[in-house]
Design a protein around this nucleic acid. Sequence first.
DNA 1: AAAATTTGACCTAC
DNA 2: GTAGGTCAAATTTT
Length: 364
Amino acid sequence: MENGLNWEQTLINELAHGMELAKQLRAHLNSTSSAESREILLQRILSSYEKAFMILKWSGSIGHPQLSAPITNLPESSISGDGSPQSEEFDRGFKDQQDQNDVSKKRKVLPTWTGQVRVCSENGFEGPTEDGYSWRKYGQKDILGAKYPRSYYRCTYRSLRNCWATKQVQRSDDDPTIFEIIYRGRHSCNETPHTAPLPPPPSSSSSLDKQESKPKNNPNNCQQQQQSQNMFFNFRTSSRVDTDDSDNKDMASHFEFPSTSSLVWNNGENNASFAFSTLVRDSILESCRSPLFVPPATSETSYFPVPQCQMMNGFGMVHSESDLTDIISCNTSATNSPIVDLDFSIDPVVQDSHFPFDNPGFFN
DNA sequence: AAAATTTGACCTAC
DNA sequence: GTAGGTCAAATTTT
């Protein structure tokens, strides 16, 4: 990809610009600047990131023309978004998915759609833990050259709902507070109403000792994300507060948008990575309330609840190997937790044309 | 008791 | 032969 460098550089510049603006906004937040100035900054930040996404989209189309085709009529199973990145090379993906039903041991038979999510978590927060799905750990492996072991998770409803989504979580060598998550397969366990409660909080273990995330979500999570399959950005919030279990409480008390947590976009091929500062996230959250961020007038579900972001417990971004899809997901964890569930997802659909934050139909 | 996690063994791709 | 991914029994947690 020769033109890769150009767009990559442009993208980096754009994101860097956005980051800078975010910092400025942070400064404004700390001071007593006017709401207008903040709003302006916020708009600029959003604009900057919109451009960045545009660039990503275009680059993806160029690099993988075959992927730019509309995928709106993909089989449900394939588009069932999910925590896992629904991005990817669909043709291959489908095939692979079918194979998945046959054997699970074959390495390459597994889905091609692999997204990478990096979640930086500090404050003991287990970033990767909550991505809106219910996972069960089925293995752990020491990886050559890696300081930390890699954990393998599969959908809790694998057998129950024949959901073959899996994910791998591995802590970054460089920064232990960063987790890299690779999703494979799509969730097909969506059936519950979108009104379902949010997933339960992480089993706590805020300790990084526990190596990776601890998936503890409820079944409904799957579909929650699936609903966002064609969504570029997906914000969810839950105003529900339930302190049934102590973990939830923990979440509530510990998790406060880890100021250092960052979201990194990782494009496998280009090695381009970008980080969103918490500020940006805050901005995004903030934008939920602003006209700038127009929730999709979804046709089938009222997916976008009222954004009353109080906190969020997960944040991750996924980018498929093929440049196609990206999903940023930040959710709250907990089914019962109070929280805001923030989810970004960049769907392949987006690649196609305009960058539609405010484009009806873009969000589903 | 049921569900989830741990962990060593096994299998497959490279 | 080695590394990575999955299985499944044992163990732990809920």
